[in-house]
């Protein structure tokens, strides 16, 4: 199982901005914005259903006040 968590677009992400500025210093152009988040890899029994996985993401791995998240099974396209 993969859970990707990112700060919501409307919440200022100063870490992402610092990364974006560093790219400019490397001479990289064309990167408009960077958001820095977290990537969780979970080993999960087949018996655990989608609703339970969604509950894990919403109630623990992400804070819905400031973050958005995507849950997907490995091999599945995001």
């Amino acid at each position: 199982m993969i859970v990707d968590v990112l700060p919501k677009a409307e919440i200022l992400d100063p870490q992402g901005q610092a990364v974006a500025r560093a790219m400019g210093r490397l001479g990289v152009s064309g990167v408009a914005d960077v958001r820095q988040g977290k990537h969780f890899v979970l080993e999960v029994d087949d018996s655990v259903g989608d609703a339970e996985l969604e509950r894990i993401a919403e109630s623990l791995l992400a804070n819905p006040v400031m973050e958005e998240w995507v849950v997907r099974r490995e091999g599945q396209q995001p």
Binding site: P7, I11, L12, P14, Q15, A18, N63, V65, M66
Partner: peptide
């Protein structure tokens, strides 16, 4: 309590 605390703007 509502809301959240995140990284300081100036890092």
């Amino acid at each position: 309590l509502p809301g959240a605390l995140v990284r300081n703007t100036g890092l």
